[in-house]
Design a protein around this nucleic acid. Structure first.
Length: 543
RNA sequence: GCACCCGUAGCUCAGCUGGAUAGAGCGCUUGCCUCCGGAGCAAGAGGUCACAGGUUCAAAUCCUGUCGGGUGUACCA
């Protein structure tokens, strides 16, 4: 509907020889301002140096004479807004489209089958997933499905590293706990992992091997036991919130394939590598960065930047049209160097969209809790799911913009779980389903070409116009990769419906009116269902 | 010091990428169940959109500066 108006205006623009201008059509807040409004004349007035109200008059007249079936009336308001009233039948008849498309309503082929890869979570297997990881997990998953709804073919990928210092510490920690369980006198590693789960893993090893590992020189067994055990639990947790990855990418494969060496070699050929103080440096300043960075330490170990560059090269070579990296705010300073490296390898780094989300700050009784996997003072994602359930967890993480520090109080989450906004949405959906079921019991069923003219109340027209916004919302969510856009929209839609429901009765003795209203109800149910589906939240028929 | 993020109702946050009279939830006050589910609805109170300039027909939104909070600023990931 909005799009029809936009293209009509664009048409008029060219026939009248006006300069090309971005066309913005909006739903006015004030119902006195018509069904739709545009500021087009205001913009043109500025460009042409003519009176916006005069231009508005010309545009409005043309709109009315050229599109009599669409436009009922126009009005020039304020400094030069054009307020447009649309033929009510034209609006209401759009409901047919919604019902016809049903579960596909809102999908677009914008991506034209292009491929996208979304990398998220990417936590190394050193401990259980925390609520901090949860935010990135849900964000990445919903962004993935937003892209899918816009016609992309999406691959969800989890990148991890099971080598390196952190993992070595993990192995040492398990070994130490193992020795402790055997009553050996042992000192816990200074930077070791203190979580309970380490002891559990040690116990498993003890049950399986007895004390036969007591004199094992290296801690490979311990490390591997820890890794497989922890990864198993991570995957279990992910499954509990409806997350499934297409690929788990191990950083090690980049070493094995020689990709890492190749990156160094290429950069060296381009004269972007030099040695200093025993380390190997990447000349990031040549790519416009503040300072050069070490990519291979004097110990011979690469820093994370090098494998990250190789990893992105790998992504590019897999041919994705779009790559999304979902990262926590702690990576803020790291990714520009990686992108600079990628750029130097002659890839178009604009294909990589980096999504940075702020941390989840945990408070307990008003006291902020600093989260550290190593120190084990965190709340796990599992515990959170236990408390409030999968749907609430998902909604909680996307109802806020990713740039805000999410303030999470466990006690509050429990107490308010009954009043959580997610129930508001689910209740609206259940209500809609119930009306439909009730109507069915009264012998109503959906027929093509139902007379929709009884849908004439202001509230009904508003409702229809707003639910028809859904495809635009999905597209906007794709543009800003911000799931919150959808959550906010659904919240408003559900609110409008609840108001309508409280005031008007759908199923009455008036058969014609009831049939028309049922179409509206069905369309609302479809939009709510589809919206919740994009967010990965259940849309229950009963609660 | 530098980089990025944030500052909107008592609290938690929206605000359609610059539009018309600033929006919700929670909390507080008061109403609404013979009727499709009251997990809902209606009404009331609550605001210098941190502050100061600038850009223009129009700024919570864009630019600059100031103040306040957060996160980083490693040969850790």
């Amino acid at each position: 509907m909005k799009n029809a108006l936009s293209s009509a205006l664009r048409e008029i623009l060219t026939t009248l020889n006006y300069p090309e201008t971005k066309i913005v059509v909006q739903l006015p807040k004030n119902p006195n301002h018509g069904d739709f409004a545009t500021n087009l004349a205001l913009q043109l007035g500025g460009q042409l140096g003519e009176s916006p109200r005069d231009i508005a008059q010309i545009l409005a007249d043309k709109l009315k004479s050229d599109y009599p079936n669409l436009v009922d009336s126009t009005d020039i308001a304020g400094p030069g807004f054009i307020n447009i009233s649309i033929n009510k039948n034209a609006i209401v008849s759009q409901l047919e489209t919604v019902l016809a498309l049903n579960k596909n309503y809102g999908k677009s082929d914008f991506g034209e089958g292009k491929t996208a890869q979304v990398e998220f979570v990417s936590a190394n297997p050193t401990g259980p997933l925390t609520v901090g990881h949860g935010r990135g997990a849900i964000l990445g998953d919903v962004i993935s499905s937003i892209l899918e709804w816009n016609g992309y073919e999406v691959e969800r990928e989890y990148y991890y590293n099971n080598a390196g210092r952190q993992m070595r510490r993990l192995g040492e920690s398990v070994k130490s706990r193992y020795l402790e369980l055997l009553g050996e006198n042992t000192e816990f590693p200074e930077e070791g992992y203190e979580g309970e789960y380490i002891i559990e893993i040690a116990q498993i090893l003890l049950d399986k091997n007895g004390d036969s590992l007591i004199n094992t020189a290296d801690n490979k067994v311990f490390k591997e036991a820890a890794e497989s055990n922890i990864f198993l639990n991570i995957k279990k947790t992910l499954a509990r919130i409806g997350l499934k990855f297409d690929t788990f990418f191990n950083e090690n494969t980049l070493y094995d394939s020689g990709a890492i060496d190749a990156v160094v070699k290429t950069l060296r050929e381009k004269n972007l590598i030099y040695e200093k103080e025993g380390a190997t440096w990447f000349k990031a300043t040549a790519a416009g960065r503040e300072q050069d960075r070490v990519i291979i330490k004097s110990s011979g170990e690469p820093t994370y930047r090098l494998p990250d560059i190789a990893y992105h090269q790998n992504k590019f070579n897999r041919g994705f049209d779009l790559m999304v990296d979902v990262l926590g705010a702690d990576h803020m300073d790291a990714y520009p160097d990686v992108l600079a490296g990628v750029e130097q390898l002659d890839y178009d780094s604009k294909k990589v969209k980096v999504i940075i989300h702020q941390f989840v700050t945990l408070t307990e009784n008003g006291e902020p809790v600093k989260m550290s996997t190593r120190k084990a003072n965190y709340i796990t994602l599992d515990e959170l799911i236990d408390e409030v359930g999968q749907d609430v967890v998902r909604y909680f993480f996307i109802m806020r913009g990713m740039n805000t520090h999410l303030n999470f109080d466990m006690a509050l989450a429990k107490d308010e779980s009954d009043e959580n906004p997610v129930f508001y949405l689910q209740y609206a959906h259940a209500r809609l389903c119930n009306i439909l079921k009730h109507a069915e019991g009264q012998g109503y069923n959906f027929k093509k070409n139902t007379d929709l003219s009884p849908l004439s109340l202001d509230s009904e027209i508003q409702l229809v116009k707003f639910l028809l916004e859904f495809p635009n919302i999905i597209e906007r969510a794709k543009d800003n990769l911000e799931p919150q856009t959808i959550a906010t929209y659904l919240q408003s839609l559900a609110g409008m419906f609840h108001k309508y429901y409280a005031k008007e009765r759908v199923v009455t003795d008036d058969k014609v009116k009831t049939s028309a209203r049922l179409i509206l109800v069905k369309a609302l149910q479809i939009v709510l269902y589809n919206g919740l589906t994009v967010l990965g939240i259940h849309a229950p028929e009963r609660m």
